[in-house]
Amino acid sequence: MKKILEGRVAIVTGAGRGIGRAHALELAAQGAAVVVNDFGVSLAGEGDGETPADSVVAEIEAAGGRAVANGADVADFDQAEAMVRQAIDTFGGLDVLVNNAGFVRDRMLVNTSEEEWDAVVRVHLKGHFAPLRHAGAYWRAEAKEGRQRAARVINTSSGAGLQGSIGQTTYSAAKAGIAGMTLVAAAEMSRYGVTVNAIAPVARTRMTEGAFDTSAMPDPADNSPVVAWLASEEAGDVTGRVIEIEGGKVTVENGWTHGPAEDLGRRWETAEVGTRLRALIEQAPAPEKVYGS
């Protein structure tokens, strides 16, 4: 059977454990050379002294694949640039970026500290932006030199970012931001041959075990075949999509779309807003319930 990623080079961030590890193993099994990034932190983002990326690299190499470990903090702009450069210098280029790294510090909104907000938004939102910024600059330069690559970006959003999740205001906001970033990046980068999509994975991981009953949740590896296909040259016509994956169920999310509207052709008067806006809301579908509500 042909390996759909043969000859391609990928970076997977947060690939030392859980969903990221499964992605790295699947991409390698499909023929990609993989930069396995992991900063080696606890569930809350604190340093734990472990080097799980090395173990994943060893697994890939034992199976006959090619991989190299990377310990960058993906939200550090310079370290993210060096990670992209490592892929290029080690394997001769870069074709795929899978942004997956993140951690949680769950709190109800009124109990969330400024430090917790900053840390979670930094790792998820800036941790997606920084690698994407540097990979995108490389792909733009390649395209301008007549070497356009069939480049692919797969970001990681969440149902928490799409529908919201009680006790996860910060995480939900960051994941919603990633969905928005995906849409804009897909539009901006298409001229360079780059597709940008996001997944919203459902899986039993360190991040979910403390927050939910995970006994019936799917395995992390259930998400990875979709990522591998999105990373392939075959997927060049799919971009700007957010895809939720729950075991064997795959859902293409609709996201924000324009709903019922009324144009008065003039400025609205405050006194008429209530009646008219309620009429529009009655015509619109009810929003999906926030997780945990």
Rank of each mutant, 00 (worst) to 15 (best):
G274C: 01
V196P: 01
L25C: 05
A261I: 07
G259V: 11
D54R: 02
G14T: 07
D263I: 00
L277F: 13
S42D: 15
N155F: 10
R21K: 15
E61M: 08
I4L: 11
V121F: 07
T13H: 00
E61G: 05
T51Q: 13
Y138F: 13
W139M: 06
G274F: 07
Q30H: 05
T90M: 06
P225F: 10
V110Y: 11
W139A: 03
T170H: 09
R21D: 01
V74L: 04
K289Q: 11
V41L: 09
V104S: 10
A67Q: 04
D237E: 11
A62W: 06
H258E: 14
T275I: 01
G14M: 12
G18K: 12
K3C: 08
V153T: 13
R21F: 11
A137Y: 06
P260K: 13
E253K: 14
V35Q: 01
P220E: 00
M108T: 05
V153S: 13
E59R: 02
D48T: 12
E46D: 15
K126Y: 12
A28K: 06
G31K: 06
T112C: 10
I19A: 07
F91Q: 10
G177Y: 08
R8F: 08
G146E: 14
Q86M: 12
V121I: 14
G47M: 11
G265C: 04
L5Y: 01
L94D: 05
V238A: 06
Y291F: 13
V227E: 02
A185F: 15
E145M: 15
G20V: 06
V238D: 00
P52K: 10
E188W: 07
I19N: 06
R105T: 04
E246G: 00
R17P: 02
D89L: 05
R107Y: 14
E244I: 02
V68Y: 05
A176E: 05
R206G: 11
G102V: 03
G18V: 04
T182N: 05
A174I: 09
V12N: 09
L183S: 06
F39N: 07
A211N: 14
E209Y: 02
E209G: 12
V202F: 06
E209Q: 15
R85F: 00
G93A: 08
N223L: 09
N37P: 03
K289Y: 02
R149E: 14
D89F: 03
E262R: 09
D78T: 14
D48W: 10
N99A: 09
A63C: 08
A33V: 03
L277P: 03
N100Q: 03
T51I: 14
G40Y: 03
E272R: 07
G93M: 01
K249N: 08
P260H: 10
K249M: 09
A141G: 13
I166N: 13
D118G: 06
V123F: 03
V250L: 12
A176K: 12
T251M: 00
D78H: 14
P225I: 03
V250K: 03
S55P: 01
R206D: 15
G92E: 07
R267P: 12
L230W: 00
G292L: 02
I60C: 05
G64C: 00
E46C: 07
E81S: 13
G45E: 12
V56S: 11
V273C: 04
A141I: 09
D76Y: 04
P260M: 08
S55E: 15
R8L: 11
R266A: 14
A187R: 15
G40K: 03
G92L: 12
G193L: 13
A32L: 01
D263T: 11
T195I: 10
V98T: 08
H258N: 12
A179E: 12
R17N: 04
